[in-house]
Amino acid sequence: MKKALLPLAAVAALGLAACSDKAQNETAEAAEAIGADANATMSEAADDVEAATDGALSTAENAADRAGAAIGEGADRVGNAADAAEDELDKNN
């Protein structure tokens, strides 16, 4: 009777070993999928940060351009006023 159980035990052990390999493969595949998802998420996050940074820099650049234009216009007005004042002084002298 003990001799009859030995082959059954061996077959059962091989079956468990096969399940164990399958379980290991499935676990490895799941880990790879999680890693791929994490990489994709990080890549998307990096792209989002880059896009937000580009947008912020573009907005700041536009604001600086507008400020520069306003300063230039103000300087032109001051220059025109100085020229007009000089012309008035020349008329009176």
Rank of each mutant, 00 (worst) to 15 (best):
residue 28 A to V: 10
residue 85 A to G: 03
residue 65 D to Q: 10
residue 3 K to V: 15
residue 10 A to L: 12
residue 18 A to E: 04
residue 22 K to E: 11
residue 3 K to D: 15
residue 49 V to D: 07
residue 83 D to I: 08
residue 73 E to Q: 03
residue 74 G to S: 08
residue 40 A to K: 01
residue 67 A to F: 00
residue 37 D to P: 00
residue 22 K to W: 05
residue 48 D to N: 13
residue 16 L to S: 01
residue 23 A to Y: 04
residue 42 M to P: 13
residue 25 N to I: 09
residue 70 A to F: 00
residue 54 D to Q: 13
residue 91 K to L: 14
residue 79 G to K: 08
residue 43 S to T: 14
residue 71 I to P: 00
residue 41 T to N: 12
residue 80 N to L: 07
residue 41 T to W: 06
residue 61 E to P: 04
residue 2 K to S: 14
residue 36 A to H: 01
residue 67 A to P: 02
residue 84 A to D: 13
residue 88 E to W: 13
residue 46 A to H: 04
residue 30 A to E: 01
residue 40 A to N: 15
residue 57 L to R: 08
residue 39 N to S: 08
residue 1 M to A: 11
residue 33 A to P: 00
residue 38 A to T: 15
residue 42 M to F: 15
residue 32 E to K: 11
residue 24 Q to C: 02
residue 32 E to P: 03
residue 64 A to M: 05
residue 46 A to E: 09
residue 23 A to W: 09
residue 54 D to F: 14
residue 36 A to I: 14
residue 7 P to T: 06
residue 58 S to K: 00
residue 87 D to I: 03
residue 7 P to C: 02
residue 32 E to W: 00
residue 39 N to Q: 12
residue 85 A to T: 07
residue 27 T to Y: 00
residue 13 A to S: 06
residue 40 A to P: 02
residue 5 L to I: 04
residue 78 V to I: 05
residue 61 E to W: 12
residue 25 N to A: 09
residue 31 A to H: 01
residue 82 A to I: 06
residue 84 A to S: 12
residue 75 A to R: 04
residue 69 A to E: 10
residue 14 L to S: 06
residue 41 T to Q: 14
residue 89 L to P: 04
residue 21 D to Y: 11
residue 16 L to D: 00
residue 40 A to Q: 15
residue 31 A to R: 02
residue 62 N to A: 15
residue 72 G to L: 03
residue 6 L to M: 07
residue 21 D to Q: 10
residue 29 E to Y: 01
residue 15 G to Q: 01
residue 21 D to V: 13
residue 82 A to H: 06
residue 69 A to M: 11
residue 42 M to N: 15
residue 48 D to F: 11
residue 23 A to Q: 04
residue 4 A to V: 13
residue 76 D to L: 08
residue 90 D to M: 09
residue 17 A to S: 09
residue 83 D to G: 01
residue 82 A to G: 03
residue 4 A to G: 08
residue 68 G to S: 10
residue 21 D to I: 15
residue 85 A to M: 05
residue 58 S to D: 14
residue 15 G to S: 10
residue 11 V to A: 04
residue 1 M to R: 09
residue 65 D to N: 09
residue 89 L to N: 07
residue 46 A to R: 02
residue 37 D to T: 05
residue 2 K to F: 14
residue 43 S to V: 09
residue 52 A to Q: 11
residue 26 E to D: 04
residue 41 T to V: 12
residue 60 A to W: 12
residue 77 R to M: 08
residue 34 I to F: 01
residue 31 A to N: 00
residue 3 K to R: 15
residue 10 A to C: 08
residue 62 N to K: 13
residue 35 G to H: 03
residue 53 T to Y: 11
residue 21 D to N: 10
residue 61 E to Y: 13
residue 43 S to L: 10
residue 56 A to V: 10
residue 51 A to E: 14
residue 89 L to M: 13
residue 70 A to G: 03
residue 83 D to E: 06
residue 63 A to N: 10
residue 86 E to C: 09
residue 5 L to K: 13
residue 82 A to C: 05
residue 86 E to M: 06
residue 37 D to F: 01
residue 72 G to R: 07
residue 76 D to G: 03
residue 76 D to T: 04
residue 50 E to R: 10
residue 64 A to P: 05
residue 27 T to M: 01
residue 30 A to N: 12
residue 67 A to Y: 04
residue 35 G to Y: 00
residue 13 A to H: 03
residue 17 A to K: 00
residue 61 E to A: 14
residue 47 D to P: 12
residue 66 R to V: 12
residue 55 G to S: 13
residue 3 K to H: 14
